[in-house]
Amino acid sequence: MRPGFVLCRFCYVSASMHEFGLAFVTAFHLIADLDPGLVGIVGLSLRVSLTAVLLSALIGLPLGAAVAAFRFPGRRAVTLFLNTAMGLPPVVVGLIVYLILSRSGPLGVLGLLFTPTAMIVAQTVLIVPIVAALTRQIVEDLLEEYADLLRVMGAGPLTTLVTLLSEARWSLLTIVLAGFGRASAEVGAVMIVGGNIDRVTRVMTTSIALETSKGDLPLALGLGVILMALSLSVNLAAAMVRETRRA
């Protein structure tokens, strides 16, 4: 346990006190003291998960809309695949990315294993299907409304995609937030491809797993409280954007 995580002497709490109370006290002190270790870990968590979400939106939104709007052979198979891939177990994605990025794997020369980049790749693989599958569903429903209009406009494929995505933007924001929730909460994939290296690839979820294994349950739960607070702030920010844009 790093020294910065020690509770201050004014807040001594007896061991018999309920662990949940202790977790909140721990969380409060970590934030109030602006623990440098914690700041680094939170920063890396946000950097990895937000980058993965951004990449997934860039890939998943057009992909999902295209599957919804266009007729092509194998379309139902693609839909089925995307829906199934929404439930990809993080630990399996982690293992596959690990084997590909390992020095003995096909992309080993890049030397990306045990770096934040590897973690971004794994989380992107994990959430692209979520963004794409949900986007497909929403755009498909929307298409029933807009099909005639688009035909009258004589819209080409690109205009069709852009129009549909633009009209569905607020629902899509919720999808992207769901993707962020999945990315920031998962531990299986980043643990395997990142290696949980102190100050290099250690993020919130892997820290929680580590502190649990060290038997420091209040600290682990305290970190969990902070992680949930982070998720809350991201969602609040999104809700505010939505409100101000709508008004």
């Binding site: 920063g43 946000l46 950097r47 937000l50 980058t51 979400v53 951004l54 939106a57 852009v162 995505l165 633009s166 933007r169 924001l173 954007v241 844009r245």
Partner: peptide
């Protein structure tokens, strides 16, 4: 359309900033 670009742009800027 403009609005969407704005939101995406904000997200991109935030991600780059964090990086």
């Amino acid at each position: 359309m403009l609005r969407r670009s704005f939101v995406l742009g904000c997200a991109a800027a935030a991600a780059l900033l964090l990086g």
